[in-house]
Every structure is written in C-alpha cells, then in structure tokens.
Design a protein around this nucleic acid. Structure first.
Length: 450
RNA sequence: GGAGAGGUGUCGGAGUGGUCUAACGUGCAGUCCUGGAAAGACUGUCUGCGCCAAAAGCGCAGCGAGGGUUCGAAUCCCUCCCUCUCCGCCA
C-alpha cells in the first residue's frame, strides 16, 4: 500500500465512480426522489435530523443540464470520426473537421470539470442522506419514544447487587488498570476464567447459530474504504472509526462491514437467497461523543468481541426474515436465561442506514435497568445500492437489489457483564449458565479466592 | 521489498489505431428437429445514465483505475491498483 492512497483522498473507488464516469450508486433511488419528492421529504423529516433532498434536487438538475451538453459534444465528435472512418476526405474538408473537433475538445474540457464537480457533489449529497424509516417505525425524536415490544425472563431477586465490574475485579477476571497501561482508557485485560468465559461465549454463540443454518465466516478485520461506504458508516461518521496511518484501511466497527460486503459488486441468483452468515470478530470503535458514558466497567470498550448475524434476501421475504433474525438473537439470551426486553426504535433513534430496528436490552440488576446488548436492523436496499448487491430473479427479469439485515447475537463483553450481574450470589460467587457449562469444561460457578 | 508475466463479456480466450460492445468457443434463454432426450440447426443474450408521461426509439459512457497523445484508443505513452510465478522476508 502506497502513501499516495492517503495523500489523494479522492483515490477511493467511491469517488472514482464520479471521476471515472462509472455508474453512480444511488443511496436513495434518485428517481424516487425526483418523482415522489414530497413523500421522501416527509419520510426524512420523521428522523428529526434536519435532512432534506432539496439541495440534491437542485444539484441533480444542474448536473443533468451539463450532462446533456457533454453528451452532445461527444456525439458530434463521434460523428466526425465516422467521416474519417469512411475514408477519402478532401484535404480541406478533413482540415475543417479536425478544427471542429479541436474546438469541441476545448469546450468539452471546460464542461468536463464542471460536470465532475457536480457529479461529485451529487454523489456526496446522496451519500449524506439516511435511509427512509419503515411504515412500522413509530414517530419520535429520541429514545423516549421507543416502543417496548416484549419482555422475557424473570428478574433475579438480589439484595444490594454488585456491578459487574466490582464482581469481576473481586474474582480477578478483569484487570482494568493494566488494560489502560498497555493501551489507553476503555481497554481491558481479561484474566484466567474471564478470558475463558469470553472464549466460551464466542464458541457457544457461533455453534448456536450454525445449527440454525447460518454459515460461519471469519472475515478480515481491516477493510478498505469501499466497504465502510458500502454499509453506510462512511463518509458521514469518519471520526468514529480507527484508521491506519500508512494504509487506506479501517479497523471494523462491526462484522456487519466485511460480511455485508462479501458480495459487493456481485449479481447472485435468486435461488442462492436467502444467504445467512454468522461471524465472530473483534470490533473497534473510537466512541467519539461518548465521553463520560459508562466509563467504569466492561460495557463500553474501544475494542470488544461480537458475534454478528447477517442475512441477504429478497424484498418479498425481508420483513419475515428480519423477525426471524431477531428471534435468533433472542435465542442466545433465552439459552443463557438472561432477562431481556425487545424495543422497536422510533424514527428519531434509528441508525443512519436502518429502515427498521429492534434493540434487545438485557437486564443489569446493579444499574436497575435494561441496557442494549443487540441491535437487529433491516436496511431495505440502502446498503445494497451502496455496495451494489444484486440478484437475478428466478423468473428471469432484470437484476434487482437485495435486501440486507443484521443483528448482534450478541455483543460478548456485555453478555459477560450481564451474566456476572444476573448470576451473582450472596457469597460473591457467580453461577455459570447451564448452556455455557459445556464450553467451560463443566465449570458451574466462579468462586472468589479465599 | 526485487524480477518477470498478466488484468477483455457468465467463463475460456482473440483482438497492437477507425469496419470493436468487441471474433471464436462456452454458459444461459427461446424456436425448430425428436416418441422423449441427447446431438444438431437457427435466434437471442452485458451494465449504468440521459432524452421521453411511459413504452418503443435514439444518444452518451464502460475492455483493472486515472491521466496523456490523436480527427479517432481495448490497442500507443505515463502513473497507480490488483493477480500469478520466482527470489527475499516472515507466523
């Protein structure tokens, strides 16, 4: 990887689409925006983010005007070249045509830079628009308007429950201080049984999903910029991710990024769908804007482990598959017998790329509240447009965009924290959930050293 | 990191300045042939965008990417990326 990759930011393929006159990927369908402007505006307004397609439409109009002239210049140039092809022109005629082409070329160069600027701007405006919320998503400005869908499990009856980090420190399975020493804040060292539980959870979750038909993948953890744009992290949230200084690569914030991009720029057959993947990866997030939040403990780390579910499907099946994917994530919580609830996010709390999203929240006794442990989102064709994920319909029609969806199942660090809190005993020990015991050589409890 | 060879449509693979969206083969779809199938024959078969209410139609762009030479570039020149082989280095 050469340094110039970084020096020229426009080197990325996303911008080459513009500069190289290759197809421009629409994030929201540009035709939909033109034809159903009011509808799109209304839908975007539900997000309460101040989004509007107006600047995009103005730019689109300008761009098309320029594009029309540009195409006409090319057409005439091609026409002149036809005359030469057919051969034997009078010298004076040939000269005149050469002159004309030179003039056309000058004009084209003028218009070319304008065209490129407009196309790039158009592209950026498109990339900056979030997905449209699904009909089923309730209106609301923030998390207060989220809707609880269901609750599962009985809350443990505990007197003065300890926080997971207190329990973990006491059991000597977390070493927060040394994590900070060898890295910085929000990095933690797991010791002994802590490391083993983390590993057991990964294996348990992957086995669980594999049995349900998810094909396991273990992808690269460093990905190129195209992937980050493809799933919607970039260009809008540049500051949220770790980027390599000497290579144009990013540390993934979630397995969603490499796994969703597995089929980027491909056209699959409808018979191959749905595709179900599960993947364990470490995840890296800068947590910019989270200063002061969850500073203690193991639930908000710059590096954490997660098992992710990803599905690729058709528009017809998407809604049902999203429900199933959410049930699959819940299956882990139920197998581990952790009390949780399912929340339907309101329009204002919805992630940038999401069309509809369920959050799963697990009970934390010491905090006396439910906390997010999974997010199960369906993206419609939003990611598919960005990443160019298509399938050929079985009836032989034109290639269509796939529907993508994904969900954590689950965030492993938070699962460990939830186990510590929910399974804590009065004597300071922690019971191991039955489902996990086979993954820990039959260990049934963590006991404090005497 | 060094040397060499490459990058063309579903795939294989031609093409070294115009007749090239691109031979030929293959795959796929349809029609014919057949009792049915195979073989064979014929036809069709890329994507994105624009003009258009839409269809049809027309146009523009695309041979790894960007730039250059030229009236005209898959083809010539420059830069970069990627793949393969050998060497070096390394888990």
């Amino acid at each position: 990887m050469r340094l110039h990759c970084l020096v020229i930011p426009s080197y990325s393929r996303d911008y080459l689409y513009v500069i190289g006159l290759r197809k421009v990927q629409s994030m929201l369908d540009i035709k939909l925006i033109r034809e159903k402007t009011e509808l799109v505006e209304k839908s975007l307004a539900r997000r309460n983010g101040g989004f509007s397609v107006k600047p995009l439409l103005i730019c689109d109009e300008e761009f098309r005007q320029v594009q029309i002239e540009w195409e006409e210049l090319n057409r005439r140039t091609n026409e002149i070249s036809e005359h030469f092809k057919k051969g034997k022109l009078e010298p004076s005629e040939a000269e005149a045509l050469k002159e004309e082409t030179k003039k056309l070329k000058v004009r084209r160069q003028e218009i070319e830079s304008l065209r490129q600027d407009l196309e790039k701007k158009l592209f950026e405006l498109q990339l900056g628009l979030p997905n449209l919320p699904d009909q089923a998503v309730p209106d609301g400005a923030d998390e207060k308007a989220n809707k609880e869908i269901k609750r599962w499990g009985n809350l443990p009856k505990l007197q003065n429950p300890m926080h997971h980090y207190e329990i973990g420190s006491q059991l000597k399975i977390f070493d927060f201080e040394r994590g900070v020493k060898i890295s910085e804040s929000r990095f933690t060292v797991l010791l002994d049984k802590g490391a083993k539980i983390e590993r057991a959870l990964m294996n348990f979750m992957l086995d669980f999903h594999s049995k349900r038909g998810y094909l396991e993948v273990f992808p690269p953890i460093l990905v190129n910029r195209d992937c980050m744009v493809g799933t919607g992290q970039l260009p809008k949230f540049e500051g949220d991710f770790y980027k390599c200084a000497d290579d144009a690569l990013y540390l993934i914030p979630t397995a969603e990024v490499p796994v969703t991009n597995l089929y980027r720029e491909e056209v699959l057959a409808e018979e191959q769908l749905p595709i179900l993947h599960c993947a364990y990866t470490p995840c890296f997030r800068r947590e910019a804007g989270s200063a002061g939040k969850d500073t203690r403990g193991y639930i908000r780390q710059h590096q954490f482990n997660k098992v992710e579910l990803v599905r690729f499907t058709t528009p017809e099946k998407a809604a049902a598959e999203h429900e199933q994917l959410t049930l699959d994530a819940e299956g882990i919580l139920e197998a581990l017998e952790l009390p949780y609830r399912r929340i339907l996010l309101c329009s204002g709390d919805l992630g940038f790329a999401a069309q509809k999203c369920y959050d799963l929240e697990v009970w934390f006794p010491a905090q006396n509240q439910y906390r997010e442990i999974s997010s199960c989102s369906v993206f419609g064709d939003f990611q598919a447009r960005r990443a160019n994920l298509k399938y050929k319909p079985a009836d032989g029609g034109k290639a269509r965009y796939m529907i993508t969806m994904n969900g954590s199942a689950l965030a492993i660090g938070r699962t460990m924290a939830a186990i510590l809190e929910n399974y804590q005993q009065a004597d300071g020990s922690v019971l191991i959930p039955k489902a996990l015991q086979p993954y820990l050589n039959g260990m049934t409890a963590l006991k404090p050293e005497l």
